[in-house]
Design a protein around this nucleic acid. Structure first.
Lengths: 116, 116
DNA sequence: CGCTTTGTGAACCGTCCGGTTAAGAAACTT
DNA sequence: AAGTTTCTTAACCGGACGGTTCACAAAGCG
């Protein structure tokens, strides 16, 4: 994992449109038009966003007739998660008590994540 | 947590100089000159980076004579970590079995994190 | 073949970004 | 008071970013 990879990943994630696209792709593959539908934005704009996501390794693309379906590739997000783990003790005072964190995690699990 | 906060956080993290500054601050407070020392870069450039980090809420600043010491504020990183958690199952196949995840977490805990 | 659908490419535009230099502010030192 | 240290502000520059429009490529369909 080179630092420049993290650069590209963070830069890609810094845009709300691109994060929304990733959230949509968490539901499954989607075509460019499907991804573009929720946004008041031209198709070429979405195409550019997709290219940014692809160069960051956050999506991969296939071919299906005219469609070019996009699929989520989460590996770079793992690197982001590992990055934040280095700082966890600075925001979680009871970090040494793992149980607290686990309970919190399980609470999160019970919340339905309808946004995705 | 508004989306625009995540925008600012990810944008701030997209620069390697700024990530290095955060890593340095994980060791403890530091003055601007101390933070600038490792970089082949003018002081105003560092000052700008610090302003970006501050506007993202990733650092806070004090006053000590001429120095303006910087302190790490990790709260926004928690939001980043929570963001990535939504995607963990896409890189971690055994995510639905929470136990696996917890074991992995505990293994991480046993590793000393001497870097910080 | 010609038309429609789906998506990309190219050129352009205004804004933001990351850096510079030069100047100035704020606090300590002598 | 004068000078030093520390840091910020202002102006500038080149390049990247996020969007647009227009043109076109590629595949399916009448």
């Amino acid at each position: 994992m080179r630092a420049s990879d993290l650069d590209a990943t963070f830069a890609a994630l810094a845009d709300p449109t691109r994060r929304a696209i990733l959230a949509r792709l968490a539901h499954g593959e989607a075509s460019v038009s499907e991804l573009a539908a929720p946004f008041a934005m031209s198709l070429p704009a979405i195409s550019k966003h997709l290219r940014v996501l692809q160069r960051a390794g956050l999506i991969s693309r296939g071919r299906n007739a005219q469609q070019r379906p996009c699929r989520l590739e989460a590996a770079p997000l793992r690197a982001v998660a590992e990055f934040t783990e280095h700082y966890r003790r600075f925001w979680d005072e009871s970090f040494d008590r793992l149980d607290d964190y686990l309970r919190e995690l399980q609470a999160d699990e019970k919340k339905p994540r309808r946004k995705h």
